[in-house]
């Protein structure tokens, strides 16, 4: 260790103290002046506020574009069953009903499956398998929805028509109450097929959030339950689910929000019908499918406005569902919500 040369140090110190610091340079002109920071701060803030304005703009433009329909039909637009381009009379009950029913079928399939996947990843799968399975499930979400639609139309609908729907006709058709849902010609196109495809599409969205949420459970909680001799299922039911319940509901709402607004996957297989039918085997319609099918054909202002009004209804409904989903996911902490 070299000793410090105190004399020199002190001498230099004295020097520095008396003389003005000759080495001082000014920053390159403008480079460090507050304006640069102010401009940058302002730019980034505008970009961030732009996101707010964008959402607001979407809401306003949908409302504005649909005002003619809302003014003309009032509540009849929501409750009316006639969608008649020739008579220029538009009631959106059928598409709204179709959206809700197909999404409900989707949820019936997606929620239990997703829960199963989350439990599988948390309690069954060996560690090395979790990553690959997780990626595989997420790939389901990466497949473009138009591929689901094509597959549904060309592959899945014929299978439904040939095998599934005749069976449903025979076995569920005669039942009281439920029966009417499953009677009708087995053509493969219709609400049930659309709902199933929608369900498959929704699985990865719900499952990946649930998986993340399950991972957010403090390990000590789980371990102490295991230490008491609980089985994996008991740990899920008594520890994991109670701890994550609000986020699990949030995850399903997130999936629901997705299902409600999905367009291409259902457009192919719904059949674009505007007649009401109780049967799930009959062609139906949904808000998104109606817009996709008819928008470029709309030949009158009121027709166009009605389609945009449909978009407004869809936007409002999904906004509410997604907002609820977010609120329920917030509670479990940042990580749990990363799938938002």
């Amino acid at each position: 260790m070299p000793a410090v040369d105190i004399e020199t140090a002190a001498a230099v110190a004295g020097d520095r103290g008396t003389g003005a610091p000759t080495l001082r340079r000014r920053p390159v002109a403008g480079a460090s002046t507050p304006p640069g920071d102010r401009l940058f701060g302002w730019l980034t803030a505008s970009a961030a506020y732009f996101v707010l304005i964008l959402l607001l703009g979407i809401a306003v433009s949908m409302a504005y574009g649909g005002r003619l329909a809302f003014e003309t039909f009032g509540w009849q637009f929501i409750t009316g069953r006639d969608w008649d381009a020739v008579a220029r009379k538009f009631g959106a009950f059928i598409p709204i009903y179709g959206t809700l029913v197909s999404s409900a079928i989707a949820m019936l399939i997606a929620i239990p499956t997703s829960l199963g996947i989350a439990i599988f990843l948390a309690e069954v799968a060996p560690r090395w398998l979790r990553g690959p399975i997780g990626i595989a499930v997420e790939l389901l979400a990466a497949i473009p929805s138009i591929i689901y639609g094509m597959w549904g139309l060309f592959v899945f609908a014929p299978v439904m028509a040939k095998y599934v729907e005749p069976w449903l006709n025979d076995h569920l058709g005669p039942l009281p109450i439920l029966g009417p849902l499953f009677t009708g010609p087995p053509i493969g196109i219709g609400m049930l097929t659309a709902g199933i495809i929608l369900g498959i599409m929704t699985i990865p969205f719900i499952a990946s959030v649930m998986r993340d949420v399950f991972q957010a459970v403090p390990p000590t909680l789980r371990e102490s339950a295991f230490a008491l001799g609980a089985t994996p299922w008991e740990v899920v039911r008594k520890v994991t689910l109670p701890y994550t319940s609000s986020a699990v509901v949030g995850a399903t709402f997130l999936g629901l929000g997705r299902a409600l607004g999905e367009t291409m996957a259902v457009t192919f297989v719904l059949g674009n019908a505007h007649d009401f039918s109780k049967s799930l085997l009959m062609p139906g319609n949904s808000i998104a499918a109606a817009i996709a099918n008819e928008f470029t054909e709309a030949d009158s202002d009121i027709y166009l406005s009605s389609l945009i009004a449909l978009g407004f209804v869809l936007f409002v409904v999904t906004f509410i569902v997604l907002a609820l989903a977010k609120l329920m996911l917030v509670r479990i902490g940042r990580n749990a919500g990363t799938k938002g």
Binding site: L52, L260, G261, A288, L307
Partner: peptide, 24 residues
Amino acid sequence: VIRFINDILLSAPSIVIGLFVYEL
């Protein structure tokens, strides 16, 4: 608020985005 709204925009139905740009 912005994060919240952004997350909603992230999941908003893409067909509505199409309608919006059509209008705009």
